[in-house]
Design a protein around this nucleic acid. Sequence first.
RNA 1: GCGGACGUGGCGGAAUCGGUAGACGCAGCGGACUUAAAAUCCGUUUUCCCAAGGAAGUGCGGGUUCGAGUCCCGCCGUCCGCACCA
Length: 839
Amino acid sequence: MHDTRFNPIKADAKWQAAWEKAAIFATPAADDPRPKSYVLEMFPYPSGRIHIGHVRNYTMGDVLARFRTMTGHAVLHPMGWDAFGMPAENAAMEKGVHPGTWTRANIAAMKAQLLRLGLAIDWSREFATCDAAYYGHEQAMFLDMFDAGIVYRKESAVNWDPVDRTVLANEQVIDGRGWRSGALVERKKLNQYFLRITDFAEELLTGLGELDKWPDKVRLMQENWIGKSEGLIANFHLVGSEQGVEVFTTRPDTIYGASFLAIAADHPLAQSLAANAPELATFIDQCKQGGTTAAELETAEKLGFNTGLSVQHPLDPDWHLPVWVANFVLMDYGTGAVFGCPAHDQRDLDFARKYGLPVRRVVADGDATDADFDGDIAFTGAGAIVNSHWMDGMSVAAAKAAIIARAEHDGWGHAKVQYRLRDWGISRQRYWGTPIPIIHCDSCGVVGVPRDQLPVVLPEDVDFATPGNPLDRHPTWRDTNCPKCQGPARRETDTLDTFADSSWYFIRFASQPDNAPFNRAEAESWLPVGQYIGGIEHAILHLLYARFWTRALHRMGKISITEPFAALFTQGMVTHETYRDAAGNWLSPEEVRDANGVLTSLDGGAVTRGRVEKMSKSKKNVVDPDGIIDQYGADAVRWFMLSDSPPERDLLWTESGIEGCWRFVQRLWRLFDAAAEKGDGARDVALDKACHRAIAGVAADIESLTFNKAVAKIYELVNAIEKSRAPASRHDAISILPRLISPMLPHLAEEGWQALGGSGLVAEQSWPDHDPAMLVDDDVTIAVQINGKLRDTITLPRDASREVAQAAALANTRVQTAIAGANPKKIIVVPGRLVNIVV
RNA sequence: GCGGACGUGGCGGAAUCGGUAGACGCAGCGGACUUAAAAUCCGUUUUCCCAAGGAAGUGCGGGUUCGAGUCCCGCCGUCCGCACCA
């Protein structure tokens, strides 16, 4: 039986079965002598269906994993599921299905979709983070961190929905109301667990320096997020009191320019004053009401309340500064109090102008040195210190050092490194997450669950009909005995933030013993991840938490690596045009007809073409992976995912684009089909060279993840093969193709390999060798320029000397005509490249 | 406001070190095959004057250089991150 076209439905299933039977994607043993290559794509949340963005992500990882195998590496390429999270609980509330049931069904459906892509994944290492066999080990690590002091418990304010009786994330609070219940959200203080990530701030920051295979953009984002700044903590004495107010400043050099002290609305001093001052209490409430969106902050007016108190200037006890409560001072950064130096800080200046406070210049702006500061734009640049007594004439940097030394000597302040990064609050008042393995005992307090009682398993018999955390109202699950005194005690009912689950899954993929989170030697044989691929949306949280978790394990002596991901690649999104009908409703691509660029709906109505946007259900511009694999097969879809756009940029999905990929797959198949005949006779040196260039070039492009360029090189080679009339060279080139395309078009490659009589599976073959001598041409085309403008090209032997090149250029008829007998002023010869004649 | 990236044909993009701009794909145009369609194949496609042959051209304006898409300075535009962080 012989098909006239490549039939992907048959071929995909056939080769996927063959790969599975031969178990060729099984992870080699940890002591495999080949160099290790751990290729990992960010594991998906099992939301229900695979999204085209996943297809792009996993195709890229797959190409690299397959290529690394072909180039002699021992490859680890696993897949799993980030399976805890709120959508499962929402489904439980909306559809009455248990979160576990919903999640498992989604995993099954999505795995079936992924299998259709023919990914070279070792599925034997698959796990879901909602498996007790996974989260039990996470609980053990949590307890290790608890014992090591990396976990601590603190009372902290949360967004509390009084109707749903649950804590809400900031994103779930809309206009001050719960997104589901619509109830006014309350600020409530709860005891919560925190991971001491701020203890790691400095090493997380300096560690970025060694991540030279990460995008600069991501490193910069993390650097900004950690937000290191250096300055002074200064104590200002309250007049007529024993108390002081501590402020943090990065500009201690401007201390002689201070004109007021401002404290946050929830600063303890403001709170205690408000107890006896109703007007202040009202003002504090007003401060809290302000919105926190970017736009609101942009336009927010500076508001202040004069407390009537004053403080002494630390360098002059007779100089008193008023103490204000101000809405622009944040309690959770620094000390929640600042000294205002209006001349050299824009916010302070806005505030001072509004409330008529003094504005005193202490840094010279060029020639401007007068103490009386003019205008409404603060001077924040560098300059000589002025109007500052003993510091006059110093540079800003010198003055900073001098003041800090003075403060430390006199005892009213000290140097301080401040980070923007906060500790990671990991308590969630939710069911579908890893239970925090803690027991509360009235006599012994907070006690860790003994290791031999792990995992603390989520109860299955829960109901979501009533609001609140089902663990809290479960009839028996909470009740337990204290491991210390054996008396009656209660389990912690909070669960861990799901970001904890994704902070170590890459270690578990590398090593998964039953009795421990990982086997150290085995994990270290694979780690760090050689290439990590995922979306830019995880640039901060996930990647920072995973770096932190790894360093926490390192600090506790559990692992030797400090950075989990040696190389990171952030791929772009898949986008599509959007369409709307006359009424403004979104239409899906299937609901739109295109007749010579004129768009109409199926019933003939006018349709407008909208912007190209990320595929999303709400805009109906999604393309379902199953549908396109049905239509074109896995290889054409994979090819499209790699073509045209550089992988870090967005990829525009188009019908004509995928059809082009389909045509190319068929074109290759025809080549394989016809090549069974023996190739004898004439050789075509140009094609032979093109073949070697493609082998080297495609390899380099896959290594550097510039798949779009690898694709272009394969097109070039195929074009060259089709043009060539030399059977022997054609046959050799076609014989190379299956291996060359195998990482990208694995099913078609197997067909080709089989058609050409190869033994075994092409996926197991080595990457073809190339002859470096074939990469260079004997003759090269040299540009001939006059005054830098191209006039002609000449062909010379590759190793032609400068003199020969110059002579050949001067002898060129177009050059002769152009210079018309004039004497060249200068001749630049770049051997093998060009000759430039300056006249 | 602060920080960053980017700007090349009708479109996605290529040009690795400062050295022949537009590889490769898509779309378009012309043709072949066919009763017809699909499929396939051949040719063509930066712009302008066009017969050959020129001229211009990588957001805009300058600069460095024998030579600039690439380096420097200043604009304009688009996108992204953070944001009252002291």
